[in-house]
């Protein structure tokens, strides 16, 4: 495989993730949390993205700090997604990794926050109180993965139909579906 030649973006090149200023600030403030700025999950690697793993019960205070502290000032929740690590090569701490993509428009920096939740406790605190964009992002993750965002004001499905019973982006949901398309009710003209 060719060597990395160019990595665009504000991520520092060459220096290890633990020296990235927001990570340094986070470690300083939350010394009691075992933040995890490795640059690999198991034997994988993170390319040009620096991520910090935070436990779900501390997420709210960490995010509030990241948004409000002038040294970090992550004022934009640019993206929120989830990855189902079922069967992923290597050891993810739990099945679902909810991934927050933070962006600071003042410092032009990005940081990814990961929260791992397992199937028996699929709950993550909502971020709707901090960023308005979290509203639809969280609805989409709930729709696609079934992760519940506690405290969300309106946690409904957003992309699939209201009667949908499954979570389509989970790895145990087949690509061709589970017969939703075939089992749609047929309304004949005389019954309509």
């Amino acid at each position: 495989m060719p060597q990395p030649l160019q990595q665009s973006g504000p991520t520092p090149q060459g220096s290890p993730p633990s020296e990235y200023p927001p990570v340094v600030v986070l470690r300083e403030r939350f010394g009691d949390i075992a933040l995890d700025p490795r640059d690999d999950v198991a034997r994988g690697r993170y390319v040009g993205t620096i991520r910090v793993t935070v436990p779900a019960d501390r997420l709210d205070e960490v995010m509030r700090f990241l948004r409000d502290d002038p040294r970090t000032r992550f004022d934009m929740l640019a993206d929120l997604t989830c990855v189902d690590y079922l069967g992923y090569p290597g050891l993810a701490p739990a099945r679902f990794g909810v991934t927050y993509s933070l962006l600071s428009t003042t410092h032009n920096r990005r940081l990814w926050i990961k929260v791992f939740v397992s199937e028996d406790r699929l709950a993550v605190p909502t971020m709707t109180g901090l960023w308005a964009s979290a509203d639809w992002f969280e609805r989409e993750v709930f729709d696609m993965f079934g992760v519940v965002f506690t405290g969300h004001p309106d946690l409904r499905r957003i992309l699939t139909a209201p009667g949908m019973k499954y979570f389509p982006l989970r790895k145990d949901y087949p690509l061709t579906g589970l017969g939703e398309r075939e089992s749609l009710p047929v309304i004949r003209r005389e019954d309509a």
Binding site: S8, Y46, G48, R51
Partner: peptide
Amino acid sequence: APIGESYG
């Protein structure tokens, strides 16, 4: 692809 995660 190599194992890993990335955002572009």
